[in-house]
């Protein structure tokens, strides 16, 4: 039986960070919410047996993000009214931060996970490797490649403006 009070406290303490990480991983506000719910549900199932809940939740988050990127169907459901999405014109000129976020969405799911864990969650290369279940060398090379792509993309976008 899960300790609901402790789980609730964990969500209060870490929910916002995990939700933001999930949005970065999916590049979508609502899919990020679905993703964090999936990860927290997996954590809830194992709550009594998990010694370090936050690393487990992060691992569940990136695993679910990578798994969902492999599926063609992303769980969209029809709605009666279309959501009000801001267009580019209304948003005004995109600043550099928005541009970096958009470039992040162009990375592969694993590259994105490496960037989010290293530069948003501030994990070391070793912890990132442990979370993703890959060698440290792979994390290093993947991170280097992702940063290079972000730089190239940002430079190209800056030149086009």
């Amino acid at each position: 039986m899960a300790d609901d009070a402790a789980f609730r406290a964990f969500v209060e303490a870490n929910g916002a960070t995990l939700l933001h990480a999930a949005r970065l991983l999916t590049g979508d506000h609502h899919r990020g919410e679905d993703l964090v719910q999936t990860a927290l549900t997996r954590l809830y199932f194992k709550w009594d047996r998990v010694d370090a809940p936050l690393p487990y939740a992060r691992k569940a988050l990136v695993t679910a993000a990578i798994d969902s990127s492999r599926r063609k169907w992303r769980g969209e459901r029809p709605v009666e009214e279309l959501p009000d999405i801001r267009g580019e014109d209304e948003a005004g000129p995109a600043d550099d931060r928005d541009q970096l976020r958009r470039l992040l969405a162009d990375l592969s799911p694993k590259e994105r996970a490496v960037i989010v864990l290293r530069y948003y969650a501030d994990l070391s290369e070793q912890d990132t490797a442990a979370t993703l279940g890959m060698p440290v060398g792979t994390v290093k090379s993947m991170c280097s490649r992702a940063l290079a792509r972000l730089r190239v993309g940002a430079t190209a976008a800056g030149g086009a403006r």
Binding site: D4, F7, R8, A9, V11, E12, G15, A16, T17, L18, L19, H20, R23, L24, V36, Q37, L40, T41, Y44, F45, R97, D98, L100, R101, L104, I115, V116, Y119, Y120
Partner: peptide, 18 residues
């Protein structure tokens, strides 16, 4: 990456869904 963070999760809704 940190821009726009701060939206909190409702623990009760997370718990009930779980």
């Amino acid at each position: 990456l940190r821009a726009g963070e701060g939206d909190a999760l409702d623990p009760e809704s997370v718990l009930s869904a779980a």
